[in-house]
Structures are given as structure tokens and as C-alpha cells.
């Protein structure tokens, strides 16, 4: 057996035992209680619904996981989604679909590059930089769009979402594929391990000769690009690009990452945990909708669950003497 496999397994052992298993347990408890409360919850239809609703926030949460693993944060993803959505909408008027998507993704990546350089090279606080970028991107979304939604999106865009492969919707398949790639990247590659090392102890990573600058910027680039990918799925579902798209998406993404067990100080967390976090968030929302709970109460429910999950985690860590 190779060292790779060994170390991968060890990492899985070390981290899952502590975090994801617990969060998976929480996800199951929520799923079971919701299925007891609502007969619709466990129907195939609803399960696909949950998965479908997980796609957009799930994609953004991958980028957010990378950023948070380095010890940063990206508050701009929602606004970048909004802005790149408008870019996509405008580009679709001029060029074929693949090129238009490429345009949007490159725009997102470019915005991420700026945030990344400002934080990693100039050492500005990620919170403040991405807060600024958040405001700028949203304002540009309004300016580019002329304050109105772009609704003449080509019908062909909907193929992106509504094509089934082996009976699975393509957007769900994309999400699964993205998580598999991200997991492999973080576990088996130099870059992935460097991202963990940077978040865990940046100074030590630098002193060991790791390329700290590059791998600190990369997560922001990917986060921006993935925000554009996420909004592409939204637009292909709605066939409309609104400058308000992605509003407060950063909060859902950060919540998913944190529920998934990542530390906001960096270095700790896994992509599987994030996936579980996303599912927990979406399930709660879906379940509350099924139960007919007022949408105004949903924020309270989700907020309480985030805080409770973290509190339980902290209490367990105290117990084990950390």
C-alpha cells in the first residue's frame, strides 16, 4: 500500500471520527425528524428537490471551504454571483453559450484574484477586503444591468440543468463531481495540503519553503469562479439574470462550511463536512417549507441550529481537554 493511500486514510480517520461523523449524525437526526413530521419529506421527488436546491449554495460552499481553510473568508461571493450573472446575461446576447459562460467565470476568477492579492500579498484583512469587494460587485451588477433583470436568456441555457444523465439531473451530477474533485484535490495533492498547512500555521508553511502566496490567492480565485458557476445554474433554471441574484448567499455558504466542522481560523475542516453542512441547511429549509412554517421563522431556525451545532462542538472539545 502506498504512503498516499495510508496518509489519506489516516487523515480520514483523524478528521471524520471527530467532526463529520457527528455532523452526519446531526443530518440524519434532522432528516428522520422531518420525515416523521411530514410524509412528503422522504419521497423521491422531494429528495431530488433537496439536491436541486443544494446545487447553487453547494458550489459556492466549495470555494468558501478553500478560502476558510487558509484562514481567510470571502464575503463577496453573493455579490460576485450577482455581478457575474449580469455579465453572463449580457454576454449571452453577444456570443454562444459556452463563451458567455467562460466570460462570466473569468470575471469571477478575476475578482477573486484581486481579493486574493489584496489579502495575501498586501496583508489586508480578508474580512474587510471582501466586504469592500462585496459592495463594489453588487453596485456593478446594478450598473451593468441598468437596474433591471435581463430576461431574454436563450432557451438553450436550460439544457444545462434539465438534461438527465443516467436519470440524474445534470446539475446534481455536477455538484457531486465538483465535491469529488475538491475532496481529491485537498487530500491528495501538493496544493491541497499546502492550503491546509497555510491555514494551520502560515509562518511554518512559509519557513518550510511552501508557496504560501500562490496557494493563499488560489482559493479566492476559485471562490470567485465558482460563484460565477453557481449563478450560471441559477440563470439556466430561471432564464433570467437579476442584479439581486446571490443576495446573502455568502451567509449560507459560510454557515454550511462552519456547520461542516471547519474552523474559521483555518487549517481545520473537510470538503465532505461542507457537503453535509450544505445538506443540513437545505433540508431544514425544505422541511420547514413542507411543514408550512412561515419563511420569517426560517432564519431563526437556521441561525439557532448553526449556533447549537458550534456550541455542542465546543463543549465536546472542552470535555476532551483542548
Amino acid at each position: 500500500m502506498s504512503t498516499n493511500a495510508l496518509s489519506a486514510r489516516s487523515i480520514m480517520n483523524g478528521l471524520t471520527r471527530r467532526l463529520e461523523i457527528r455532523m452526519l449524525g446531526l443530518a440524519l437526526v434532522i432528516a428522520i425528524s422531518l420525515s416523521l413530521l411530514s410524509p412528503y419529506f422522504l419521497t423521491a421527488n422531494n429528495i431530488f428537490n433537496i439536491l436541486d436546491q443544494s446545487v447553487v449554495v453547494g458550489i459556492v460552499a466549495v470555494g468558501m471551504t478553500l478560502v476558510i481553510l487558509t484562514g481567510g473568508i470571502d464575503l463577496s461571493v453573493g455579490s460576485v454571483a450577482g455581478m457575474t450573472g449580469i455579465v453572463l446575461g449580457l454576454a449571452l446576447q453577444q456570443m454562444p453559450i459556452p463563451l458567455a459562460i467562460l466570460c462570466a467565470v473569468l470575471t469571477g476568477a478575476g475578482v477573486g484574484l484581486v481579493s486574493g492579492i489584496l489579502t495575501a500579498y498586501f496583508g489586508l484583512a480578508a474580512f474587510v477586503v471582501t466586504l469592500g469587494v462585496m459592495a463594489i460587485a453588487r453596485s456593478l451588477a446594478y450598473i451593468f444591468s441598468g437596474q433591471t433583470a435581463i430576461s431574454n436568456i436563450p432557451e438553450a441555457m436550460s439544457n444545462i440543468v434539465y438534461t438527465d444523465v443516467f436519470g440524474i439531473p445534470s446539475n446534481v451530477l455536477f455538484l457531486v463531481g465538483l465535491y469529488a474533485v475538491a475532496w481529491a484535490y485537498l487530500t491528495y495533492t501538493k496544493g491541497g495540503r499546502t492550503i491546509y498547512a497555510i491555514g494551520s500555521n502560515k509562518e511554518a508553511a512559509r519557513a518550510a519553503g511552501l508557496n504560501v502566496l500562490f496557494y493563499s490567492v488560489l482559493p479566492y480565485i476559485l471562490s470567485g469562479a465558482l460563484a460565477a458557476v453557481a449563478v450560471t445554474f441559477s440563470i439556466s433554471q430561471l432564464l433570467s439574470a437579476d442584479p439581486l441574484m446571490g443576495n446573502q448567499m455568502e451567509l449560507d455558504a459560510i454557515a454550511a462550511v462552519v456547520i461542516g466542522g471547519a474552523s474559521l481560523f483555518g487549517g481545520r475542516g473537510t470538503i465532505i463536512g461542507t457537503l453535509i453542512g450544505v445538506l443540513i441547511m437545505v433540508m431544514i429549509r425544505n422541511g420547514l417549507n413542507l411543514l408550512g412554517v412561515s419563511p420569517f421563522w426560517q432564519g431563526s431556525a437556521i441561525g439557532s441550529i448553526i449556533i447549537l451545532a458550534l456550541l455542542v462542538e465546543r463543549l465536546i472539545n472542552w470535555r476532551s481537554g483542548r
Partner: peptide, 21 residues
């Protein structure tokens, strides 16, 4: 502060400079 990466295992700490190169 300057050497140990606490969230990586002993093995990965050992191989950290290797990762850099």
C-alpha cells in the same frame, strides 16, 4: 510558531519541506 503545523499529522509535518520542493 515557526515549525509545527498543528492540524497536519506527524507524517505530513515530516514531509512538509518536501511538499515545498
Amino acid at each position: 510558531v515557526q515549525s509545527i503545523v498543528p492540524d497536519l499529522t506527524v507524517r505530513e509535518n515530516l514531509l512538509l519541506a518536501h511538499i515545498g520542493q
